[in-house]
Every structure is written in structure tokens, then in C-alpha cells.
């Protein structure tokens, strides 16, 4: 039933998998090991959940976490064993087929975004992110890049901040004061 993209086996067909059924892709074994270790760690943690007001029986807050992490651990063990038995796919490399430089760069960009979001604020962080990302991917002039990214950012900001009043971290931009200024202006114009 597996549907495989002939070029890259990358699972773009749907939300379901893009792995190879009879070969081990680069890094797959490591990923399976990582999942097993995570499962075991969570299982230990689940076992440590204490019911503050009663016994740790079938109806305690521990029951389901222990059951589900144990299932994870068993499934991860089977997956690891199966993966280890598969022959390696020699035609692929990790750096080219799994995590190419471009994807890695974006993971880095997102990590940077997450770090800067709170101290610097939503607007400057997003402006930098969009500009860098679009410039890198589209390789057009800076004027075009800035126009597109700032325009899009403004649209998103208007929808989320003004219409839906989602208050993203303001950081160094005095957003509330700016909005108040426009509000006063609008009121002044009406009055």
C-alpha cells in the first residue's frame, strides 16, 4: 500500500509515511534508537506519577501513562529490531536525502526565531525571518523581498493583532502605544 515518491521517498503524498519498506534509510536506525530511549525514559517517568489523594491503582493518574508508554517502548523495540535487520539504502546520504542544507538552515532559522521572539518581539523577529527566508529561497532583489515580506507581515499582523486581538510578545516595539496613537487619531478625526 506504500506510496513512494520515486525521487525522494519523502512522504509528500499525504500525512502518512514516506519511508522505504524494505530498506533502511540513512539515520533511520539512529532515529529508531532515539525513539526507544525516549519511550523508556517516559515509561520511567510515568511509573513515578503518584496519586496525591489515593492508591496508585487502575483508576489512578498513573494508569494510562504507564500503559501508553509501555506500548511505545514495546513498539519501538520491535521497530528497532526490524530496522536493524534491513539492508542499508546505499543510494542515499543523510546530508542529501534526509536533511539537506536547506532544510537544516530552516530548522536553524526557526530555532533562532523561537529564541528571539520573547526578547525582541514579534514584529522585528518576523520581519527578519521572512526577509531572510524569502531572499534565500527566491533570490530576488532586496527591494522585492522586503516589499513582499513586510506586506505579508503587515497583513498577518492586522488580522491577528487587530481583528483577533492576539497579543504576540511586543518586545522592543511599543505596539500598544502605536495602536493607541492611531485610535486617538481616529477618534480625533471623528470628533
Amino acid at each position: 500500500m506504500e506510496r513512494i515518491d520515486p525521487e525522494h521517498h519523502d512522504g509528500t503524498s499525504d500525512a502518512t509515511p514516506g519511508g522505504e519498506p524494505d530498506r533502511r534509510r540513512p539515520g533511520e536506525l539512529g532515529f529508531a534508537a532515539f525513539l526507544l530511549l525516549t519511550s523508556l525514559f517516559l515509561l520511567v517517568s510515568a511509573w513515578g506519577i503518584e496519586n496525591p489523594f489515593g492508591p496508585n491503582g487502575l483508576s489512578s493518574p498513573r494508569a494510562l501513562p504507564v500503559a501508553t508508554t509501555a506500548t511505545m517502548a514495546v513498539a519501538a523495540t520491535i521497530i528497532l529490531a526490524r530496522t536493524a535487520r534491513l539492508p542499508r539504502d546505499a543510494s542515499e546520504t543523510f546530508a542529501r536525502d534526509i536533511l539537506p542544507a536547506r532544510a537544516l538552515l530552516f530548522v536553524g532559522l526557526l530555532a533562532g526565531y523561537a529564541l528571539l521572539l520573547r526578547p525582541v518581539g514579534f514584529l522585528p523577529t518576523s520581519a527578519i525571518f521572512l526577509a531572510v527566508a524569502i531572499r534565500y529561497l527566491e533570490r530576488r532583489s532586496w527591494g522585492w523581498t522586503l516589499a513582499v515580506s513586510l506586506g505579508a507581515l503587515l497583513a498577518i499582523w492586522l488580522v491577528f493583532r487587530i481583528v483577533f486581538t492576539v497579543l504576540m510578545p511586543a518586545g522592543i516595539v511599543p505596539e500598544a502605544e502605536i495602536i493607541q496613537f492611531f485610535r486617538a487619531l481616529a477618534k480625533g478625526a471623528v470628533g
Binding site: 500500500m1 509515511p17 489515593g54 489512578s60 494510562l64 501508553t68 508508554t69 511505545m72 513498539a75 521497530i79
Partner: peptide, 28 residues
């Protein structure tokens, strides 16, 4: 689609993610 074992792992992971935090019934 593909491996059922991997599906079971993913489902169990989801249930575990859903139970993170304070348990609403006992605050554990």
C-alpha cells in the same frame, strides 16, 4: 499505511502527549 507497528507507536505517543500536565481529576 505501511507499518502497523509504527502506527501503534505513533498513536501511543499521541496519547502520552495528551496526558502531559496536571491531571484534571487529581492535579497529579
Amino acid at each position: 499505511q505501511g507499518s502497523l507497528t509504527k502506527g501503534i507507536f505513533a498513536g501511543a505517543l499521541g496519547i502520552a502527549i495528551g496526558s502531559v500536565g496536571r491531571d484534571p481529576l487529581t492535579f497529579a
